[in-house]
Every structure is written in C-alpha cells, then in structure tokens.
Amino acid sequence: MKDNAETQDLAIEFVGVVKRFGDAVAVDGIDLAIRRGELVTFLGPSGCGKTTSLRLIAGLELPSDGHLRIAGRDVSRDPASERNVGMVFQSYALFPHVSVLDNVAYGPVIRGVKKAEAHAKARGILDQIGLGGLHDRLPAELSGGQQQRVAVARAIAQQPDVILFDEPLSNVDAKLRRKVRSEIRALQQEFGLTAVYVTHDQEEALAVSDRIVVMDKGRIAQVGTPEDLYERPASAFIANFIGDANLIEGRVMAGRFAAEGLDVPVSGADGPASVSIRPERIALDLSADGPARIASGTYLGSRMEYAVTLGGTELLVSRPISEPRLEAGQPVALRIDTGGVTRLS
C-alpha cells in the first residue's frame, strides 16, 4: 500500500485498466503510475493501445474494467468535462477566426474567469513562450511551429492536472520536428507540467521523455527511461522496435555467449539464449586475416551501415561517415563493446 507522500506525488494511476470495443481488447489490464511533473510517452506500433490509453485519461473513453485516478481522485466514470485535463491535438484545433490571445484565454473564460483577467494570464504565458508579439494575429498567420506553441499555451492556461499530447508533431514539417519537440520539452520542464505524450516515432520518444511506456497488443511491454529501453531492452520486441538491433540466437556457456563465428561475454545461466547487439557498438578494423567480411554497405548521409558476415552470423554495423569507406568483400576484425550486448533470454 502506498503511503500518503507517495500517493500525493502521483498525477495519474492506471489500476488494472481494461478497455474493450465489442470482442476486441484495446487495453488489456495495465497498471501504471505517473508522477507529478513527469513527461511520459506511450510508444508502440499501430493498434497497440497507446492512443486508447490517452483517450482513457482524457475521458473520451471510459474503462471497461479497473480504475483510473487523476490527482488522487478516481475518475473512472467521469466524462471529459469533469476532468481537469488539457489536450494538444494533432491538428492543434485552434479557433481560426479569433486571435492568438483569445485562443489561449478561451479555457479560463469558459470556466468563469473574467475576460480581462484571462487575457492578462494569456499574455503572460505567450510572453513566456516567446510569442509575445503575436497576440493579435490569427492562427493562419503563424507558422506550424508557432501554432503548436499556441496550442500548448492554451492547454497551460487551463492549469490542468495533466496535459495530453496526441501525436503533436504529425502535422509539423520534418525539418521543424527537432526544434518543436525541443520547445515542447522545454515548456514542460519550465512550467513543471505533468504530460502524457503519444507517438509512434521512436526518436521523438527518446528525445522528449522522462520515461517511455512501450505497448504491444494492448499490454505494457516495458517501462523505463529512454536509456533503460535502448541500452537494456527486456525483449526482442523492445530491442527491435526502439532503434536497430542485431538479434542473435546461440548458447551461453561459462559466462560466454556463442553463435556461429561470434563469442561475447554475458551474464546468466548456461543454456540456449538470445542476445541483442546494437549496430553502433560494433567497431570494424581492416585486417587481412580478419574473420569477418563486408557483404554490402549503405550510405545514409550521417553514417554508413554495413552488412558483415562472421561465420554463419550476419551483423548490421553502423560507422560514422568520417571513417574510411569499406568495400564489399574486404576482410575485417570486429571489436564489440560489451556495453551494447543485452541478453534477452
């Protein structure tokens, strides 16, 4: 049982939450606690349950079973209108015919705050996020990144218990995504917001999150910091979903994992096993008597990716573009950073 201090520190709690749509189970008995001031991202492939989880927090869907608490209050049966939740939609959902200032002040005004007071608060938030000179503009007169910040400002103005981001960068040009995601993260930290973020983009999740919840088939596959999930995946699904990974079957004997041509140290019991090795943790050295061969190379701008054969094992290896280019057929020796090797079973 949680003590009072721990309970007060929690912003959102899923307790055995299930959501069914007819015979289909979209969310299958998840348990999760999100702390105040934390940005937690739900990540996973299409149909994994991440968006349904967000909609359950928002009150746009209600649990079929289990309980959902926000700020210590059970909201399992409460509609969206009775929850203190802010939402930033994919489309921003800004009112096109009113000013930026009125968009941001909208929430407080409909909650009964006097218009002058709501405008003063909205101006303060807009100034704080770098949009102070754009109060009187219409949304169509702003860039995509500016519209995104207005949508966040509008959510902040409501003083919600939690802000929800539903694929917030899906409508932002690819070149702007890095900048906008950094701005979202900076605003979340500056205002101390509790935020839940949904995306299918692994790099985006790694960049903005305190913790990531990876979902698969309606269940939580793993929860952890970005570093936890990338460096210490709990399964082949996680290793393969977040970044690239070499997934290799072999056998452990006396603290060594062996596959055809491969031998690396690992921990755990002897017996059949599988490991994940990240491509960037493998270094290649030109060696006339090297046991491996370059099978092919792919130019990716900032790096080269090589397919390397080692006995009966094929490995994907990532090298900085600044290193000398290797050609198919060249013999190489491998140096594997054991920090990039994770035993999966």
Rank of each mutant, 00 (worst) to 15 (best):
D3C: 09
T338N: 09
N84H: 14
A5L: 15
F42V: 07
G268I: 05
S81Y: 08
E183A: 14
S46V: 15
R293G: 00
I125Q: 03
E61F: 05
I242F: 07
F165G: 01
A295Y: 09
H67E: 14
S296L: 11
I34K: 01
T342C: 12
L134S: 13
L10V: 15
P320S: 10
D289V: 09
S267P: 10
T338P: 05
I70D: 03
S276C: 09
S91K: 04
A273F: 00
S91L: 00
V264E: 02
K2D: 12
S91C: 00
I184F: 06
G290A: 02
R73E: 15
A307S: 15
L315I: 05
V104D: 00
G133D: 14
K2P: 12
Q188H: 14
Q147G: 04
F21N: 12
L39A: 07
G268Q: 06
G192M: 09
A157S: 12
P160A: 10
L138P: 01
Q159D: 15
I12K: 06
R303F: 14
P96V: 06
V308E: 00
A205S: 09
T199G: 07
R73F: 10
R69M: 11
V266F: 00
G133Y: 08
V308I: 09
F237Q: 07
K121S: 13
E305P: 07
D289W: 01
S296Q: 12
E190F: 15
V275P: 00
G22Q: 13
L286A: 12
L310Y: 00
P226Y: 07
I70L: 09
K175A: 13
D210N: 12
P168V: 06
S296T: 14
S64V: 10
P45Q: 15
R77Y: 02
R343M: 05
A207Q: 07
L247T: 07
D166Q: 04
R36G: 08
F257R: 00
I156M: 06
G297P: 08
A155H: 01
S81L: 05
